[in-house]
Design a protein around this nucleic acid. Structure first.
Lengths: 135, 135
DNA sequence: TTCTATGCAAAGCATTTGCAAGTCC
DNA sequence: GGACTTGCAAATGCTTTGCATAGAA
């Protein structure tokens, strides 16, 4: 079962966690690797992936994973929504309370016991909108 | 721009489309490949991927990028929601109109132009609920 | 001292692509 | 006939894994 092993707080793990907490850009593993390598030049990409996996498993961070896209990571473990720019791929937080109405509606129309949902909005960020206006 | 080319209805394309329309199981490309190969033994996986891409681009089918590692496909091009059973992994269609309120709310709290969203409910299907009751 | 983690490189997996030959309209 | 597709195989891109060594408690 996940979480049954002891968790050593190595320099690598601490740096990864810190960098993730210090950004709101929902970076990819590669971007986190770059941030971490600036502080620990010998850290490897494999270590970054391994730690991101472990930290997500323990609920210390969030993994934003949709098939067909690169995974992104969020230092905020609280559940919240995101918007993704279809043009540049940027992901940002949405400051909205979880929508209970979704659970209510879904429970009414199917015979599942609904325990949650994953919702991500798709759109165009202001930067990309402006760029396309100036073509 | 997508859709500017003529679209030939080859045997491969027809079979892929038919198999997708005939199932409600939201198969992966590989599963569609197996279904198609039963009818066209020489079809290649690359052709399946290419056609799924083209058909989705033209709005004839849907590409579902859910949590997980593989994309899934839906022969129903109308946008609709899905529930996933956390226990057995089954995915089923939800017969609900797209919730416009989601777009409204998201547009109010961020400066993106929202063009859509992906929403997947998570829960336990009746079969799994009954099984757990009988333990 | 023991269990856990790291670096490195190789492997894995889903998907995409180049190309010559074939097919559709 | 010309545009579009196919099969095949190689390439790509992201992620995971094996293994010997290093580090944490």
């Amino acid at each position: 079962m996940p979480g049954s092993k002891r968790l050593f707080m190595t320099a690598q793990r601490r740096v990864i966690l810190e960098e993730l907490k210090n950004t709101s850009s929902h970076p990819t593993a590669e971007q986190i690797f770059d941030l971490a390598r600036a502080r620990l030049p010998r850290i490897s990409l494999g270590t970054v992936y391994r730690n991101l996996e472990i930290l997500a498993e323990r609920g210390m961070i969030q993994q934003l994973a949709w098939a067909g896209t690169q995974k992104r990571y969020d230092g905020n473990p609280e559940s919240h929504y995101h918007v993704r720019c279809l043009n540049c791929g940027r992901v940002q937080d949405i400051m909205v309370e979880p929508l209970a109405v979704i659970t209510e509606i879904f429970e009414r129309v199917c015979d599942y016991e609904i325990v949650g949902h994953r919702l991500e909005a798709l759109g165009l960020c202001r930067r990309c909108l402006e760029k396309s206006r100036n073509v």
